[in-house]
């Protein structure tokens, strides 16, 4: 079998901030609400607590983000997706839930540098000065849906795979040298 390939094969751009396409990462959409075993089930796969609304709990390569009142985004290494799904199926057996692999449906970008936020300020109607550490913001980047959070002196931006080229174009346009805000 071939190696999994991210949408843009790891494209990058160096402007006043650095843009890097990363991944593929393992990503799982987990939908459940009011399920007792949920805390434990998530803890078992990402070793994080269940995030509060609009938060993301990050633990090394793994993370769990709050997407909506009944939806979480689990991030694990790509190779661990099957095992993670199996673990969830076991710990949530008998509970109404949905866990599905969306690793390949996404593109992930890192926007790095002192002025990384300036790149995103040009694309999203988000008050980045008020964005809390560990806050996961779902919004739009220009004309497409995106999720973003601050992480390791920069931001992680997630979008749909089919528009990866468009989002790379947006980030490149916004990070042009000399266009700092």
């Amino acid at each position: 079998m071939s190696e999994p390939v991210s949408a843009l094969g790891g494209a990058s751009f160096h402007g006043f901030a650095t843009i890097r396409e990363i991944g593929p990462l393992g990503m799982i959409t987990l939908r459940a609400k009011g399920v007792k075993a949920l805390d434990k089930a998530v803890k078992a796969v990402t070793d994080t607590k269940l995030p509060a609304p609009r938060r993301i709990e990050i633990n090394g390569e793994k993370a769990c983000g709050w997407m909506s009142p009944d939806e979480y985004l689990l991030i694990v290494p790509y190779a661990e997706v099957s095992a993670t799904l199996a673990s969830l199926a076991k710990s949530l057996a008998g509970e109404h839930h949905l866990a599905v692999d969306v690793s390949d449906a996404r593109a992930i970008f890192r926007v790095e540098g002192d002025k990384a936020a300036d790149v995103l300020r040009k694309l999203s109607p988000v008050d980045f000065e008020m964005l809390q550490p560990g806050e996961l913001r779902r919004t739009r980047a220009a004309q497409v849906a995106a999720a973003m959070w601050a992480q390791d002196a920069g931001f992680t931006v997630v979008c749909f795979r089919s528009v990866a080229g468009y989002v790379m174009g947006l980030l490149t346009h916004s990070a042009q040298p000399g266009s700092e805000l």
Binding site: T29, R31, A32, D70, H96, H97, L98, V100, D101, V102, S103, D104, A105, R106, F160, R161, S162
Partner: peptide, 11 residues
Amino acid sequence: KVYTANVTEQY
């Protein structure tokens, strides 16, 4: 009790 997920781009 129904959940949906759009997995169009997963495949």
